[in-house]
Amino acid sequence: MALQQLKFEFKVNNPIEFSHEWRHHGVVGSGDLEILMEKKDLGGAVQVQVVTPVVGFDKVWGMVLEKIVKENRLGNISIEINDNNATPIVVSMRLRQALAEAAKDVRKEV
């Protein structure tokens, strides 16, 4: 099975940054995916790399990821997604779970 690598970059006004250097969420498995997030100085941008066996869904990936970035006003973060045939709703759910975990950690620090 050949894997393809997709790369995206998004930028929003007044982005919110993570306080932690990195975050991991999810497990690659049947119909699931893994998300790795790393805080980086990207001039306020978000860079996303998707490794997936599914071909032809570049536009769908872009729309799902852009929606998450805009809704959460993310910035200065690098996201790596290792996909194992997850549906767009699973991708969205896993990203929201990872962001919720990051938010919990921020609240603990305060």
Rank of each mutant, 00 (worst) to 15 (best):
residue 4 Q to L: 13
residue 6 L to A: 02
residue 8 F to D: 02
residue 8 F to A: 01
residue 9 E to R: 10
residue 10 F to D: 02
residue 10 F to K: 02
residue 13 N to L: 13
residue 16 I to W: 03
residue 16 I to C: 08
residue 17 E to W: 00
residue 17 E to L: 08
residue 18 F to K: 02
residue 18 F to Y: 07
residue 19 S to M: 12
residue 19 S to G: 13
residue 21 E to M: 10
residue 22 W to A: 15
residue 23 R to Q: 12
residue 23 R to M: 13
residue 27 V to W: 07
residue 28 V to G: 05
residue 29 G to S: 12
residue 29 G to H: 01
residue 32 D to A: 12
residue 33 L to G: 01
residue 37 M to I: 13
residue 38 E to G: 05
residue 46 V to K: 02
residue 50 V to N: 04
residue 51 V to K: 11
residue 52 T to E: 02
residue 57 F to M: 11
residue 59 K to H: 11
residue 61 W to M: 04
residue 63 M to V: 14
residue 64 V to N: 00
residue 65 L to D: 02
residue 65 L to W: 03
residue 67 K to T: 14
residue 70 K to Q: 11
residue 70 K to R: 14
residue 73 R to K: 15
residue 74 L to G: 02
residue 76 N to H: 05
residue 76 N to T: 06
residue 77 I to F: 02
residue 77 I to T: 13
residue 82 N to P: 00
residue 82 N to S: 11
residue 83 D to S: 04
residue 83 D to V: 08
residue 86 A to C: 13
residue 88 P to N: 04
residue 91 V to P: 01
residue 91 V to H: 07
residue 95 L to K: 05
residue 95 L to G: 04
residue 99 L to V: 05
residue 100 A to D: 12
residue 101 E to A: 14
residue 101 E to D: 15
residue 103 A to Y: 09
residue 105 D to L: 13
residue 105 D to E: 14
residue 105 D to R: 09
residue 107 R to T: 12
residue 108 K to L: 12
residue 110 V to D: 09
